[in-house]
Design a protein around this nucleic acid. Sequence first.
DNA 1: CTCGCCATTTGATTTTGATCAAGTGCAACC
DNA 2: GGTTGCACTTGATCAAAATCAAATGGCGAG
Lengths: 241, 241
Amino acid sequence: MEVRRQDIHNSDIPVVCRACEARHGGVCGALTSEQLTELNKHSSRHRLETGSEVIGQGETVVNYSNIMRGVVKLTKVMADGRQQIVGLQFAPDFLGRPFLTESAITAEAATDSEVCNFPRTVLDRLVKKTPELEHMLHQQALKELDEARDWMLTLGRKTAQEKVASFLYLIATHIDPESVDMSAFDLPLSRADIADFLGLTIETVSRQFTKLRKENVIRIENNRHVTVPDMDRLMRYAGND
Amino acid sequence: MEVRRQDIHNSDIPVVCRACEARHGGVCGALTSEQLTELNKHSSRHRLETGSEVIGQGETVVNYSNIMRGVVKLTKVMADGRQQIVGLQFAPDFLGRPFLTESAITAEAATDSEVCNFPRTVLDRLVKKTPELEHMLHQQALKELDEARDWMLTLGRKTAQEKVASFLYLIATHIDPESVDMSAFDLPLSRADIADFLGLTIETVSRQFTKLRKENVIRIENNRHVTVPDMDRLMRYAGND
DNA sequence: CTCGCCATTTGATTTTGATCAAGTGCAACC
DNA sequence: GGTTGCACTTGATCAAAATCAAATGGCGAG
């Protein structure tokens, strides 16, 4: 039942995938070199500029993607325009909703990004034949579910200050999985996006940034670059004791 | 690759499962009669009184469950006691977080309920051997993820009135999957639970109920029984246009 | 029947965050 | 150098929901 990849240095693996896998641990890791070669025939890399849409709410899904670089935001909008970010995805996350053809959310590059696209039909076929691949996708879905539920607590029960601190803590711990030092990073989202993520207005977000800055919980340069002198202190501000 | 159940009337299937499956479409449907028999050796049914805990936040998971009857609430609590319901599960949902031994949430019977428990170790072993079972669990995880994201929009961007209307609409459409008529039902949650679900206080919930009643969107008897004369109208109040 | 216990409702007041309305700072462009 | 545009900040006011504080109402025990 177990389908195991050969040695990662196996020359059967497409060059582009070899370079990719070395850096990331995405779902492709579940595939044999033959399957990778097959998938690679239909896959294509794309650069996404900030703000460009991967898929829109209500549209038909033709592609799944792997995020190679950057941050992708998942949003839901109401009829009157109110908007909520329901997820942030970082490399090497899988992007897409298996087994449904209509997307319930909009996915949009929050920063300059790079993705690897594969046709839905090809991957769906591969999933049916490869239990290990479904397992990877299942794990990712469960991870996203855990994150969504954590965030529900933040949205429903935290104060504006705690929400903003929670956001900063989230970014600090997710933006660069390689790095050990989480105390300095660039925000991948604008104030408007942060507000949409936290269920606040940009004004409230701005005020809370100012407050955290004045209380020396964070330092900010150029509106985007953040330094955290004491991560535990930030965590306490976030309400995660 | 496909592992198909035999005819549902196959006498190899444990009696208790036959009765169960006929009514529900839970994850056990993915198992062969042999596997069902095996699982059944270790499984046990339990009645849960309202308020009794299935698993606590931070505890070690020893059992997974299938909900046979009733409603189970999934909650998260902060150190200072603030609480958020992050999911509601109805029969025949699967209850548990595969592949993790420590629970990140508390699961508690919201109404009198009945569950079928199986040891984590037995099911985990079965999942490894049965791709179809993992597929069912994957589907359920994706469904819960979709629901969680819908709810994030409600928590982050809707008004108190819209939140309460959204809750009523959710219950109307989920409480009795068999029934065609969704216009009358009993609330499975107390005002306090509803508040925890909506990220509000009980007072605000109560006031919104009163308002919806006065505007003839709903009728309420005995604090728990709700009638909805016009479901579309309720949906508009919920902000789902 | 009455008491006491809950859950729920209702009312008065306060607080938090939203809204409305200017400012500020910075980079691109002429 | 000055103008424009944009993202963000700051300030004043407002509104929604939280908080604090009593009622109310149903229900089981005595």
